[in-house]
Design a protein around this nucleic acid. Structure first.
Length: 538
DNA sequence: CTAGGGTTAG
C-alpha cells in the first residue's frame, strides 16, 4: 500500500475510479481508518463519490464501528440518490447490524426500492446476529428469492442457538444442498455434542472437501474422542482425495498431546512441513504444546525458536510447557522476553507464570505477579488464577495463608481449589484442614470418589486405619466407583492404555514376567523404591 | 472497480 499510495500521490487529478482503487486497497489490508480518512480527503478536493465508492467505505465504517462517520455517509448518499443501489443498501444493513442497531438496519431494508437475495440475506443475518431467530425465520419465509447461501445462513442461525431440530428440518426441506450445507450440519452436530449424528451425516455425503473432514475431526476433538480422531485422520490420508490443512493438523496434534502419541506427533511434524506448513503459526503452536505434553521440552523449544512469526498463543504455550516441567526459571525468562517482544500477556499467560512460581516455591514473586496482572494489565482474575495462588501458598506449606486467601476471594471456592488444599494437606499432614476440605468437596462433587481417596491417603500416612476403613464405607455408600487412573503408551503406531495391575493385554503373562525379572535385578543391585518397601513393586 | 455462507492452537 505504501508504494500504491506513492504512485497515487503523483497523479495530478485522480478521478473517482482511482480514489476507489485506493479505498479498496486499504480495505483489503484492513486499514479501515485510512479508508475513512482518505474518503474525507477526496470530498475536501470536491471529487464526487460514485456508486462504487460507498459500499467499500461503509464496510470500513462497519469494521471499526465508526458509526458516526457511517451516519454522515448515509446522509450523503441519500442526497446523492444512491440509496436505490442494491450494493449500497446491503452494506448499510451490514454496518448497522454489526453495530447492534437492528432498527436502523431494518429501516434501510424497508426503504430499499428493490430487494434482491443479497439484501434479504443480510437482513436475515442481521436478526441472526442479535439472536432473534423468530424474526429471521419470518423474513426467510417471506423472501421472494432463496438461494443456497440464504438457506445455509438460516440453518447456521438455528445451530448457533443449539436448535439442531429446526436446523435439520430446514436442511431436509432444502431444494439444492451444496457441500457447504452438509458441512454446516456436520459442524452443528459436532459442536452440539451429537457426534453420532455427525458421523452418520458424514457417511451419507457423496462429495467431501477439507471442511467436511475438519468438521468430523473437530467434532471428535470437541467431544474428547481422541482415538476416533486419529482413526479418521489416518482414513483421510488413505482415501487421499483431500489434503489435510493447518486446521486438520492442529486437531491431530492436540490429540497426540492428549494421548501422549509422540511418534505420531513427530511424524505429523515432518508431514506438516512436507505439505507446506512450515512457518504456520497455528501448526507451530500445536507442535510446541504436543512436544511439551509428551515430555520432550527440547523439541518444543526448537520449534519455538524456529518460528519467525509468533503470537500470544506461541508464548503462552512455551511458558506453560516450561512451567509444567519444573523449568520455572526459563519460563519466567521467556515471560520477560515476551513483554520485550511487544506481546501483551493475557489471563492464560499468568496461569503459566503463576504455575512456574509454584514449582519454584517463589511465593512472594508469585503474589507480586498476581498483583501486576491486575494493576499493570487490567486482567480480571478468574477462579483459575485464584486457584493458582491457593496452590502456590499451599504447596509452600503456608496453609493458613491459603485458607485466608480462599476466604477473601470474591467468588466461592470451587472443587479445584479445595482439591489443591487437600493435596497440600497430604504433603504437610494437616488432618484438620483435610477434613474441612473433604466436607466441601463432598458437596461440590458428590459423584467423585477420588476426593475420599485423597483424605483416606492422609489418614493412611498418619496410620489412622480406622478412619481409612470408615471412609471406605462412606465411599461405597455413595454408590460411585473410583475409575482407576490409566496410563497410555504408544506401541507400533497405536496408543494402548493400561492401569495398575491391568490384565487386559493379550500378552499379560509375558509383560508381568518381564516386570518381575526387572524387579529382581533391581533388588539384587539394592535399588529399593518406596513401592517395593510396601511390598507392591514385585 | 462493488454485496451474503464453513474448520484450527494455549
Amino acid at each position: 500500500m505504501a508504494h500504491a499510495h506513492k504512485v497515487f500521490d503523483q497523479i495530478p487529478d485522480p478521478n473517482v475510479a482511482l480514489w476507489n482503487a485506493m479505498f479498496r486497497g486499504y480495505a483489503k489490508n484492513e486499514w479501515h481508518r485510512e479508508v475513512i480518512l482518505l474518503f474525507c480527503r477526496m470530498k475536501s478536493l470536491d471529487v464526487m463519490p460514485n456508486c462504487y465508492t460507498f459500499p467499500v467505505v461503509i464496510k470500513s465504517c462497519g469494521k471499526i464501528n465508526a458509526l458516526v462517520e457511517g451516519e454522515e455517509i448515509n446522509c450523503e448518499l441519500i442526497k446523492g440518490g444512491f440509496r436505490a443501489n442494491p450494493y449500497v443498501g446491503t452494506t448499510l444493513i451490514e454496518m448497522y447490524a454489526g453495530g447492534g442497531f437492528i432498527g436502523a438496519a431494518h429501516k434501510v431494508f424497508l426503504e430499499m426500492s428493490e430487494r434482491n437475495v443479497f439484501a434479504w440475506t443480510s437482513m436475515i443475518n442481521a436478526y441472526i446476529l442479535c439472536r432473534d431467530m423468530v424474526s429471521a425465520r419470518r423474513l426467510f419465509d417471506l423472501a421472494t428469492e432463496r438461494d443456497v447461501v440464504l438457506w445455509n445462513t438460516v440453518i447456521s442461525g438455528y445451530i448457533e442457538l443449539g436448535n439442531m431440530v429446526s436446523a435439520q428440518e430446514l436442511f431436509d426441506e432444502m431444494p439444492n444442498r451444496d457441500v457447504m450445507s452438509w458441512n454446516t450440519m456436520l459442524n452443528g452436530y459436532a459442536r452440539n455434542g451429537n457426534i453420532k449424528a455427525c458421523e452418520r451425516l458424514f457417511e451419507e455425503m457423496r462429495e467431501r472437501n477439507i471442511f467436511s473432514w475438519n468438521a468430523l475431526i473437530g467434532g471428535y476433538a470437541h467431544n474428547g474422542c481422541f482415538f476416533e480422531l486419529l482413526g479418521s485422520f489416518k482414513r483421510m490420508l488413505v482415501e487421499g482425495d483431500v489434503l489435510p490443512n493447518d486446521a486438520t493438523l492442529v486437531n491431530v496434534l492436540s490429540a497426540c498431546a492428549r494421548l501422549g502419541a509422540l511418534e505420531l506427533g513427530e511424524w505429523v511434524h515432518v508431514y506438516a512441513e512436507s505439505i507446506g506448513n512450515k512457518g504456520n503459526v497455528y501448526v507451530g503452536n500445536a507442535l510446541i504444546d504436543m512436544y511439551a505434553k509428551c515430555g520432550i521440552m527440547e523439541n518444543s523449544l526448537n520449534v519455538f525458536s524456529s518460528m519467525d512469526v509468533k503470537d500470544l498463543i506461541t508464548w503462552n504455550s512455551i511458558i506453560y510447557g516450561l512451567a509444567m516441567h519444573g523449568r520455572g526459571v526459563e519460563a519466567l525468562n521467556l515471560f520477560s522476553q515476551m513483554k520485550n517482544a511487544g506481546e501483551k500477556p493475557d489471563g492464560i499467560t499468568f496461569i503459566g507464570v503463576l504455575c512456574a512460581c509454584t514449582h519454584l516455591g517463589l511465593v512472594e514473586d508469585g503474589l507480586s505477579y498476581f498483583q501486576s496482572m491486575v494493576d499493570e494489565y487490567q486482567i480480571v482474575p478468574q477462579i483459575e488464577h485464584y486457584g493458582c495462588v491457593v496452590d502456590l501458598l499451599a504447596r509452600a506449606g503456608l496453609l493458613d495463608r491459603a485458607v485466608n486467601f480462599v476466604k477473601e476471594m470474591p467468588m466461592e471456592a470451587d472443587a479445584v481449589i479445595w482439591a489443591a488444599l487437600l493435596g497440600a494437606c497430604k504433603i504437610y499432614k494437616n488432618i484438620e484442614l483435610a477434613e474441612v476440605a473433604l466436607e466441601q468437596l463432598v458437596v461440590l462433587e458428590p459423584k467423585n470418589p477420588a476426593n475420599y481417596v485423597m483424605l483416606s491417603n492422609v489418614y493412611g500416612d498418619l496410620g489412622r486405619w480406622k478412619d481409612v476403613a470408615r471412609l471406605k464405607v462412606a465411599m461405597r455408600d455413595t454408590g460411585f466407583e473410583k475409575v482407576p487412573g490409566c496410563s497410555l503408551i504408544e506401541l507400533n503406531g497405536t496408543v494402548v492404555e493400561f492401569y495398575s495391575l491391568d490384565e487386559r493385554h493379550p500378552e499379560t503373562e509375558e509383560i508381568y514376567g518381564a516386570l518381575t525379572g526387572l524387579t529382581k535385578l533391581l533388588r539384587s543391585s539394592r535399588y529399593v523404591t518406596a513401592l517395593m518397601e510396601l511390598g507392591i513393586g514385585a
